[in-house]
Design a protein around this nucleic acid. Structure first.
Lengths: 164, 164
DNA sequence: TTGCCAATTGTTATAATATAACATTTGCAA
DNA sequence: TTGCAAATGTTATATTATAACAATTGGCAA
């Protein structure tokens, strides 16, 4: 059995997204209580905006929405909130897109692997221990000690393949 | 035996880098002849600047050096040359660094896997078929068709681990 | 309770990365 | 040799991110 853990699946097109958002925020609240971290209203709002969909969100898109709600929102407002959310593992940055996506399993450490559909733009996150272990192993053979892995796979998700 | 191919190793500190550069440019010239692509003097110069070391190079660092040599160098000068070199597989972008690194095996297709030393900054490139296959396989189990993989591993290279 | 400290947020400015759009030049082939 | 496509020049601007310092807030020790 593969040590695979689907942290955020590609959702059914019919899924009720409000549920995803609510679950994610709830998990973040719980994690913050446990850790003694502060999920302020600003940070919570940015987390909600990241979770508006399963597509990665641009920092400046978040900023545009924040500006509509709070006077004085500026780039540092967003980037500082994102920094916090990333440190706590509630949000990941997709390096190949310069965009941010919610993490389905905030408690969970490690960076995961991202599947990015080039057609619908949605992202699924998995955490496959075999992949991580194989990469660490092959790096080790070259004397390299792996500490962090960035794995982003572009392609077509099942729905978009089927729709072709 | 792993299907591992080291495209660019971490070099010995004693290595004669001029040789790396010469070999890389020679391979690019050969590949361009074969493919009917044009390695103009600008593109060749940018390739040389990317190959100044085994550390990824920033686009604007390349631009600064170009400006010292040619009047009128501007961001598009560099980005267009990098686009060409990337399309031909002579250069890769390290997404997590927004920087560019030479490819040791230009003929070779596929995106490879990058080992990035957080201490010395140098990068090695491998192309491990087992890693690529495992990722494609696990994605496939979720209905996802992998087309391109971005794999960047941060850690410590052998020399830097030893020096600690 | 008060006043202090650290964390958070506000504010202004700027740095760093990248592309758009159009003009000019170059190299090659009909 | 001229005409076209590719390459490069040129100017402007878009996008992504951080620096630096000020103001505010929230908890907690005296």
């Amino acid at each position: 059995m593969p040590r695979q853990n689907v942290l955020s699946p590609f959702p059914q097109s019919s899924h009720v997204h409000a549920r995803c958002l609510k679950v994610a925020v709830g998990k973040a609240e719980q994690a913050c209580r446990t850790r003694g971290a502060r999920l302020t209203s600003l940070r919570r709002r940015v987390l909600e905006l990241v979770w508006r969909s399963h597509e990665p969100v641009k920092a400046y898109d978040i900023l545009d929405r924040l500006r509509a709600e709070r006077r004085g929102a500026a780039p540092p407002t967003v980037y500082r909130a994102l920094d916090f959310l990333r440190e706590e593992g509630f949000v990941h940055k997709i390096e190949s897109l310069n965009a941010y996506v919610g993490c389905g399993e905030p408690g969970h450490l490690g960076s995961g692997q991202f599947l990015i559909c080039r057609h619908c733009g949605e992202v699924a996150e998995i955490d496959d221990g075999d992949i991580a272990a194989l990469i660490a192993d092959r790096a080790r053979q070259l004397g390299f000690a792996s500490e962090r892995q960035t794995i982003e796979v572009d392609g077509l998700c099942g729905d978009c393949r089927a729709a072709r």
